[in-house]
Design a binder for these strands. Structure first.
Length: 422
RNA sequence: GGAGAGGUGGCAGAGUGGUCGAAUGCGUUUGACUCGAAAUCAAAUUUACCGGCAACGGUAACGGGGGUUCGAAUCCCUCCCUCUCCGCCA
């Protein structure tokens, strides 16, 4: 949620920022709701003030006297009007709140203009794409692939996009997760093992709701959502809390399976490990002082990059343009890894600064030196998503004999330096 | 899943219909005393929103929501959560 005062005082600024995201929002309608809400609030508060004043008098006079009964009558009459006004206020207020929840976050000034993915800026590249592998092929075409990654049985048991990982396949997932978590720990992130179902309040706080419920799996009778990312339970850990300024920045990481319904994708995008309904990911999360959030964003991005460097995977960093920014992000870098077999870049991490957008929804604050609560800034990034990293490892490191040579960083986690597809 | 008890300020803990945003204790902050510290004494110490340049004023909040009443922390309904006992269970 953006600051209501900002919309009130500088609507043009808000309008321009939203335009940069190429979203259409009826700001006038929101502003009108805000105006009406305040007018009604003032009215209701003054009526309640009257009630309180008369009530105060009554408290001091003996019960049952004619004066007392007169006051009762007076307040009885007043009550009807107040109830009606309160009802109106409530209606306006919930409409206004809903509208505010549907307003996107504003892009940071350093975000480049652009309409879609094609306008993103290549911020940095690392590694030599041309020199990867003479034997690369799309990972699902590697002979024996289905021995390690069983999509057919996954479809039978659950549905498309829910593979079984078998033998070295399962072992690779475990090795990567272990590697990611250890690296995050070394970088100062405290490991957390969070719930993987969250309630609606949590999903609202991080921006999944309202609006995007179709992208989450929902339980039938308990009205819980399977987490699309560990970001949701992790961020909500401090919901409705005021932190001590001295503890900032708080840095945490978590592994969770992630569940995404992702309706509407097809073709090569969803072949093999490219896009799944369930996948494993380690998420990095920070709660920081507002003055530090952009420094922290760069550090976060570097923490994620380091993983790709250690895995010896060529990657590039994209600075997302306004039109390709998500609803809740103020600024976002995507890390894309090169998959030599498909000759494509794949997003394996998305590092974002939400500024106070999530913190305002979640009411996560810290106490400043002068004792006043102030909203923190939240940031998160993948560190990293497993299946696409895995796909790139398989494709880029495929050898002539059909085995895959693992990067040195992974050998101790995997237990061997070679993956076979038997 | 069944039965019972309970959810009050940073914490502990009073309050069972009328100036109660809420006693008291602890904690914290500031000041006094002291060479300094402890102890002691004094004062301060929730949050949100609205109005206001500000000082300040107003309204709301005693787990959430609804109801009764002129008036609710207090009575009623409902949901959530915690604890105890029983059942079940990795």
């Amino acid at each position: 949620m953006i600051d209501p005062k900002l919309l009130r005082d500088s609507p043009d600024l808000v309008r321009a920022a939203i335009a940069q995201k190429h979203l259409t929002v009826d700001l006038e309608a929101v502003a009108a709701l805000d105006t009406r809400w305040r007018a009604q609030l003032i009215e209701v508060e003054s009526l309640r003030g009257q009630q309180k004043a008369v009530n105060g008098d009554m408290a001091k006079m003996p019960k049952g006297t004619p004066e007392f009964m007169a006051k009762v009558g007076e307040l009885k009459a007043l009550k009807v009007g107040v109830k009606a006004k309160e009802g109106e206020l409530k209606t306006t207020e919930s409409a206004w709140q809903q509208a505010m929840l549907e307003l996107p976050n504003l892009p940071h000034e350093s975000v480049p203009d652009g309409r879609n993915g094609g306008d993103n800026v290549v911020f940095a590249t690392n590694g030599d794409v041309a020199a990867v592998s003479a034997y690369a092929k799309a990972h699902w075409e590697i002979p024996g692939f289905e021995n390690l990654f069983d999509f057919r049985r996954g479809s039978k048991v659950t549905g498309a996009g829910f593979p079984f990982y078998i033998g070295d396949g399962a072992r690779l997932v475990r090795a990567l997760l272990h590697f990611f978590l250890n690296e995050a720990g070394n970088a100062g992130y405290t490991e957390v093992n969070p719930p993987i179902f969250v309630n609606a309040a949590s999903a609202i706080a991080t921006g999944q709701l309202p609006d995007k419920e179709g992208q989450m799996y929902e339980t039938v009778i308990d009205q819980l959502y399977a987490v699309p990312t560990a970001e949701v339970p992790l961020t909500n850990f401090f919901r409705d809390e005021i932190l001590d300024e001295a503890v900032l920045p708080v840095k945490r990481c978590a592994y969770t399976p992630c569940f995404r319904r992702e309706a509407g994708s097809y073709g090569k995008d969803v072949r093999g490990l490219n896009r799944l309904h369930q996948f494993d990911k380690v998420e990095l999360l920070k709660w920081v002082h507002p003055t530090q959030s952009y420094v922290e964003l760069d550090a976060l991005k570097e923490d994620a990059e380091r993983l790709l460097q250690k895995l010896e995977l060529p990657y590039r960093v994209l600075l997302m343009c306004g039109g390709d920014l998500g609803f809740a992000q103020a600024k976002k870098y995507d890390l894309e890894v090169w998959a030599a077999g498909q000759e494509r870049w794949f997003e394996v991490s998305s590092c974002s600064n939400f500024e106070s957008f999530q913190a305002r929804r979640a009411r996560i604050r810290f106490r400043t030196a002068d004792g006043k609560p102030e909203l923190v800034h939240t940031l998160n990034g993948s560190g990293l998503a497993v299946p696409r990293v895995l796909a790139a490892l398989l494709e880029n490191n495929l050898q002539a004999d059909g085995t895959v040579k693992l990067p040195a960083a992974l050998v101790s986690y995997f237990g061997r330096d070679t993956v076979t597809f038997k």
